[in-house]
Nucleic acid binder design. Structure first.
Lengths: 270, 270
DNA sequence: AAACCGAGTTTCAAATAATGGAACTCAAAT
DNA sequence: ATTTGAGTTCCATTATTTGAAACTCGGTTT
């Protein structure tokens, strides 16, 4: 797992603990956290105490477990409104979903992961949060690959380094070379597929949402199953999806959406 | 504004900065933050740097503004799933919303504020996050008052202390005494109203979601307008809403939802 | 053109807080 | 009654944070 916290002192370390709790995805005991923690017991203990006091974690005293705190939901609400494409993209997502009648995803890149910021489910009304905030691997999803394809070489390289390339299905790309070739292909044609690389039977087309400068702000995808549809079938939708992507890019430009997110001015790692 | 960070060292201070950025609700310049900051320039600067490096804030280098970072969305997704009533309440919310045909809210208490964790909008499909993660004042909303009513005196007192009692409408309760009387009335009948106390023309009934021990886990409300409905009209729905609240309480018991959230073992403030 | 300004950034010694090994508590298991 | 182990506290050492002051660098005023 990435060391995002490197060089950010106490605050970075505490936030790393938050991530670890989140990674469990379920309430977790102190000892479980301690097991794969780089910190000694007393130190970890204090972090967890502090985070709990702060409402970033919540403590279930009966079961002696820690879970993610409710304060995060409040903070994320603001984050989602001001740092994601979702609010601006909403009408375009709605229209696209209605027309194509399939599941539509809007995603952005966070660190080296795909973060889904909005979703339309063909059938049922939106399931809140079940999608917004969800993360997935970048190298084996349509939206992920499409966003990676438009990253600067300098930014891409370290991301590829630290990828673990887990083989989810028999179609998963399992090494950096194969992925690089795929990214070149995506840049050629301007869109990409997920050929059952993440889940068997699940396919999708994805297009990037590009700034005037050619950087990918996010990506848009239409997902289907091999039963209902084919890659060729999805490909027919590409121009419609690209139209939506352009509209979203346009609104984001009008609203003056930042071209570069969380510019990491590197602090000496020492 | 409350000093949640009291006594939590560097991490607490940094998180307080996060809250301040969130409070602006829009991208904010460094100087704006500095204005009402208790920290000197260099110190605040380092906090903001660290938080940005950590993805908790994002920096727009063109406009030189900070916004809430996208990492929060990822973390909150987990928080919402594991520390909110929303996932368990979903089917009951759906059913209730369908039956009453009005806007339905599910809320919990965070610190001294109402935090909406889910919502059903009678007319249009759900607006994501526009509701989950939103906060409101506890003293002048139906859900807020109902939850306050079932709080222990010891917990309630300090919350009432630090309330500012802003007068939103001519019906807003504007002092602790009036509120206390209202809370007694709510405990008597087991539900409460919002009588246009927050927004003119907007009324609601709210019921608490109670644990076996009589503590309020959250609250459920049905909202309407004075044009479409009346308090008496809403009151007719109470038993149906209470039924939903009991169902949710039941599921939460079955799932072993913690009875006490983020138990604040007080650290000496010194 | 030179001086000024103010937002943003860096520096560094002093002040403060974090660290972690070890000791302690307490409930459950033997 | 004793052991075990999770959770918690202690405190001298160590490392980080702190913040006044100095610096940078566009842009503006004299």
């Amino acid at each position: 797992m990435a060391d995002r916290s490197a060089g950010d002192g106490t605050v970075g370390k505490a936030l790393e603990v938050l991530d670890r709790v989140a990674a469990f995805g379920r309430p977790v005991r102190f000892t479980e956290l301690l097991e794969d923690s780089p910190y000694p017991k007393a130190t970890l203990y204090r972090f967890v105490q502090t985070l709990t006091n702060q409402g970033m974690l919540s403590y279930d005293s009966e079961r002696q477990t820690y879970a993610m705190g409710i304060r995060l939901v409040r903070l994320a609400h603001v984050a989602w409104r001001q740092s994601s494409l979702a609010p601006m993209a909403r009408p375009h997502l709605d229209a696209l979903a209605e027309e194509v009648g399939e599941t539509v995803h809007l995603a952005q890149l966070d660190h080296a992961q795909v973060l889904y910021v909005d979703k339309r489910n063909a059938s049922r009304p939106v399931e809140m949060y079940s999608s917004a905030g969800k993360v997935g691997p970048a190298y084996c999803t349509g939206v992920g690959k499409v966003m990676l394809a438009y990253l600067d070489e300098a930014v891409l390289a370290p991301i590829l380094e630290q990828q673990s390339f887990h083989r989810f299905t028999e179609h998963t790309l399992t090494d950096a070379e194969a992925l690089k070739a795929e990214l070149r292909a995506i840049r050629q044609i301007g869109y990409g597929f997920d050929r059952e690389e993440h889940e068997p039977g699940i396919i999708c087309v994805a297009v990037p949402i590009l700034t005037a400068g050619g950087r990918a702000l996010g990506a848009l995808s239409v997902t289907s199953t091999t039963e209902r549809n084919s890659l060729a079938g999805l490909e027919k939708r590409v121009s419609r999806i690209q139209q939506a992507a352009r509209s979203i890019a346009q609104v984001s430009r009008d609203w003056g959406f930042p071209d570069q997110h969380s510019s990491n001015r590197q602090v000496e790692t020492n």
